[in-house]
Design a protein around this nucleic acid. Structure first.
Length: 425
RNA sequence: GGAGAGGUGGCCGAGCGGCCGAAGGCAGCUGCCUGCUAAGCAGUUGUAGGGAUAAAACUCUACCGGGGGUUCGAAUCCCCCCCUCUCCGCCA
């Protein structure tokens, strides 16, 4: 959510900067509602002032055992008028809130301009692409061949876009989760949390999934709860409606959770394999920072995620998303894309964003400055560290051998009971 | 699922339908005082939204879990909802 006062005072500038995302955003509706609302507030507050004065007067008269009948009659009128106006104010405020909740974040000045993913800018590359003396296979083929992934039976259990890991495959997934959490907690300074995997509507609104993207979420029938599409939601909302101390910041949390997404509108995309699932595992990084340092925090958060790929010896690149490709709540996003020989492509494995105060304003997360000033909104950031299923994909494809086996990256072996190679089971 | 208790300011905690935004205490801040610390004394300290302002000062309105209702007037009375806690049952 954007700052209403900033919007009011910088309407054209905001329109211009939002237009960088593509499409046009017309804020004239906002202007009208805001003005109506303020006019109504002025009117109703005047009446309330009058009412309060009269009530005092009535109390005084009654104490002196004098007649207050005329005032009582007047105030009955005023009170019902106040009630009417209060309802109108409420309507305007609701309309304003609906509007504000649907306005995306303003792209940061460092965000590359552009409308489509082709306009994204590569920031850096790391690692060397593997060379094969044979035609590298796709991960689903490798997984099925080795007997560690079973998409057919997963379909029987839950349908398309679900997976069944078996044996060394299941172990690999679990090893990666532990490996990532250990790096982030021991080397990168994050505190591990295990949040609920379903949350209420307020949380989803706080991080920006609602009200606009309800069709992407799984809702629990008969409850106002949703399965989380990312740990970002529960973890960012940990401090919802709280005022932190300046000395508490920055706060770094990491969390492993499964993630649930409907993937509505992606029919026909990545139908095979682990790339796009209704349920997948992810280790998430979340930061709460002071406004002044949030862009430095974004850089280190991205590096924290990259470190996992470096330790696994996987080639990747980091790209800065252009304005048109930014998520709704994000002011700036780096995607980390890992090299997948099976597709001869880099594919997203992490997305690291600074939301500035956009989520904090929605979720009402503030901190009190040490110098005694007014509480200010924190900046929130998050990134995948990493998507676990896609990391399995990367390992299977990058570390595959001609015989169909897969060499486990050294750093992961302690987590795999010392296994060096996955062979056909 | 059944029975009960409770939700008040950063925290604890009082509150008869009428100066209650809310006593008192703690914590915090500012002075004074003491060789330092502790104690003591005095003052001060919430959030949001309007108006005003260059910005403040200032001023108004709202806020005692949330939403309705009664009333000239509600933290206080009534209704609904949410949350927390205790006991019983069931259960990983």
């Amino acid at each position: 959510m954007l700052d209403i006062k900033f919007l009011r005072d910088n309407l054209e500038e905001v329109e211009k900067r939002l237009a960088l995302r593509g499409g046009t955003i017309d804020l004239s509706e906002f202007k009208k509602i805001d003005e109506d609302r303020r006019r109504l507030i002025a009117e109703v507050e005047g009446l309330k002032q009058k009412k309060n004065a009269a009530s005092e007067e009535i109390a005084r008269l009654k104490k002196e055992k004098k007649d207050a009948a005329h005032l009582l009659a007047d105030m009955q009128q005023v009170s019902s008028r106040i009630k009417e106006l209060d309802e109108k104010v409420k309507e305007e405020e609701d309309a304003l809130e609906r509007l504000l909740l649907n306005i995306p974040n303003i792209p940061h000045s460092s965000v590359p301009s552009g409308k489509i993913s082709e306009d994204n800018v590569e920031v850096r590359k790391s690692g060397s692409l593997p060379k094969f003396s044979f035609a590298p296979r796709d991960h689903s083929e490798i997984g099925e061949m080795l007997g560690i992934l079973d998409f057919e039976r997963a379909g029987k259990l839950a349908g398309a876009r679900f997976s069944l890991y078996k044996g060394a495959g299941a172990l690999l997934e679990r090893a990666l989760i532990n490996f990532m959490l250990d790096i982030h907690t021991r080397e990168n300074g994050y505190t591990e949390v295990i949040p609920p995997f379903m949350v209420n509507r307020a949380c989803m609104t706080g991080t920006g999934q609602l009200p606009k993207f309800e069709e992407d979420l799984f809702k629990i029938e008969g409850w106002d709860h949703f399965l989380i599409p990312t740990a970002e939601v529960p973890v960012t909302n940990i401090f919802r409606d709280e005022i932190l101390k300046e000395d508490d910041l920055p706060i770094y949390y990491t969390a492993y959770t499964p993630c649930f997404r409907k993937e509505a509108g992606s029919y026909g995309k990545d139908v095979k394999g682990l790339i796009r699932q209704h349920q997948f595992n992810k280790v998430e990084l979340v930061k709460f920072s002071k406004p002044e340092t949030s862009y430095e925090e974004l850089e280190t958060l991205t590096q924290n995620a990259e470190k996992i790929l470096q330790k696994l010896n996987l080639a990747y690149r980091v790209i800065a998303l252009c304005a048109g490709d930014l998520g709704f709540a994000s002011a700036k996003t780096y995607d980390i894309e890992v090299w997948l020989p099976g597709q001869s492509k880099y594919r997203e494995i992490s997305s690291c964003s600074n939301f500035e105060d956009f989520q904090a304003r929605r979720a009402n997360i503030k901190y009190k400055p040490k110098d005694g000033g007014k509480p200010r909104f924190v900046h929130t950031l998050n990134g995948s560290g990493l998507a676990v299923g896609r990391t399995v994909v990367a390992i299977l494809e990058n570390c595959q051998q001609e015989d169909g086996g897969v060499i486990i990256p050294e750093a992961l072996r302690p987590y795999m009971g010392g296994i060096e190679k996955i062979r056909k089971q």
